[in-house]
Amino acid sequence: MTTTVFGHRGIPEKYIENSMLGFKYLADRGEAVEFDVHLTKDLIPVIMHDEKIDRTTNGSGYIKDFSYEELKSFHLINDVNREQQLVQENEGIPTLDDVLAVFSDTQIQLNIELKTDNFDYSGIEKIVLNTIPHFHFDQRVIFSSFNIDTLDRLYAIDQTLNLAYLSEQPVNDFSHFMQAHYLNALHPGLEGVQDGDVIQRVWTVNEDGELAKLIDLGVAGVFTDNFVHAMQIRSCRG
């Protein structure tokens, strides 16, 4: 199996994470993307990793406490740990519609994580699923979450979805667990990679040795902060 390389929040080693610049760069050069969805107070799905806007914007507070119009007053900033990141001046927090438009009519594989492990945003599953049909994707969208209830609700809405469970640690009796929740794959952290016949996409893999090991192992996918470099490593392993 060829390991698919997912740009984790775009390409944070070059452009600030979850920025339109990073997503457009990936759309032109990559093969798969992963990003996180939250809901604003007025139920607009927006793209950011953290529940709070403090780390990657010039603002402070929880996404759930802002309307989208209020969020528009803030802009993305460089992560203090990655001062070399490029960022477009006054680029705002993108909506789900913004990001889907970038990848619509491309061959990019999408992994949309519903970020409900800390806040179980009411209705997020239906809102996200209702947004997807407005765009055209050749490949099935992967929906993932750390919250198994979110995945169960997604399945209740649409039994054809490609669902993946996120976990830091190995999942006990994963075969039964996956059947019980109608899952297509597991998305483990590096410490949670399973032995056995299971589709796995592993996060977040940035070290060359770990990338090479997982590619040789034939995992279905890796999530990485520099998809260009990871694809080069994969090419060398082939």
Rank of each mutant, 00 (worst) to 15 (best):
T2N: 14
T4E: 13
V5T: 03
H8R: 07
H8A: 04
G10T: 04
P12K: 07
K14N: 08
Y15K: 03
N18F: 04
A27F: 05
F35K: 11
D36W: 05
T40N: 00
K41F: 04
P45K: 11
P45S: 09
H49L: 03
D50W: 07
D54F: 06
R55S: 09
R55L: 11
T56Y: 05
T56Q: 01
N58H: 06
F66C: 05
S67R: 08
E70V: 02
I77C: 00
Q84F: 13
Q88N: 14
E89F: 09
E89A: 15
E91K: 07
G92L: 02
G92F: 02
T95C: 04
V99F: 00
A101Q: 15
A101D: 11
V102R: 09
V102N: 00
F103L: 01
S104T: 15
D105A: 03
T106R: 05
I108G: 01
I112V: 06
T116L: 00
D117K: 11
D120H: 11
Y121V: 02
L129C: 09
I132H: 00
P133K: 10
F137D: 12
F137V: 13
F137N: 11
F137P: 13
Q139R: 15
F143N: 03
S144T: 06
D149Y: 08
T150W: 06
L151I: 04
R153E: 02
L154T: 04
I157R: 00
Q159P: 15
N162P: 04
L163C: 07
Y165V: 07
S167K: 09
P170G: 03
N172I: 14
F174M: 03
H176M: 08
Q179D: 14
N184P: 06
A185M: 15
L186T: 14
G189I: 05
L190V: 12
E191F: 08
I199T: 12
R201G: 02
V202A: 10
E207D: 14
G209W: 03
L214N: 00
L214T: 13
V219L: 00
V219W: 10
D225R: 06
F227C: 05
A230R: 02
